[in-house]
Design a protein around this nucleic acid. Structure first.
Length: 162
DNA sequence: CCCTGATTCGC
DNA sequence: GCGAATCAGG
């Protein structure tokens, strides 16, 4: 499949809309993301007004030499032993995607407080639906048919979030 | 491992 | 001109 005028127009629009190369490739069909990227460059529109994910244009500072020989200071002098470091059970690890990096085919399972800075999405490869296989299981599991004791049920529901 | 764009180079 | 392979990065 070659680059017809129509397909090129599509490419331009989608690219300028901020879609990623792989997303565009899927949408156009018959091309890989490499082909899309190559074409984008040949068309001279590599830089985007609204990049899907701003690629660092700045250079990274040369790695500062690591202090090697110093012993790792166990910073923790005074803390009168708090009750228990028992972690909350039902919080997940932060996802790999933020609202800015969440792609079309990434799991959109929200993790954390949407109003806080640490809010993320799961971000793993999504299947048919908006979620990855694991979260799809949780999301689409209606109810457990049998009644259980309150404690048992609570323990059950919490387990799913570990 | 998933993803992103950038570059190279044989075709 | 094209795009797979590769590179470099999150």
């Amino acid at each position: 499949m070659g680059w017809t005028d129509e397909r090129v127009e599509n490419l331009k629009r989608l690219w300028l809309d901020g879609l990623s190369a792989s997303q565009i490739a899927k949408q156009l069909g018959g091309v890989t993301r490499n082909a899309v990227i190559g074409k984008v460059h040949r068309l001279g529109l590599s830089g985007r007004a609204a990049p899907s994910q701003p690629t660092r244009p700045v250079f990274k500072a040369p790695r500062p030499p690591r202090p090697v020989a110093t012993a790792p200071a166990p910073r923790r002098v005074e803390t009168p032993a708090q009750p228990a470091p028992v972690p909350t059970v039902y919080v997940e690890e932060p996802g790999s995607a933020t609202v800015l990096t969440l792609g079309a085919h990434m799991c959109k399972w929200p993790i954390g407080d949407p109003s806080s800075d640490g809010f993320t999405f799961c971000g793993r490869r999504a299947g048919e639906g908006p979620y990855c296989i694991e979260h799809a299981r949780v999301a689409y599991q209606p109810q457990q048919p049998k009644k259980r004791s309150g404690a048992t049920e609570l323990a059950r529901s919490l387990r799913r979030y570990i």
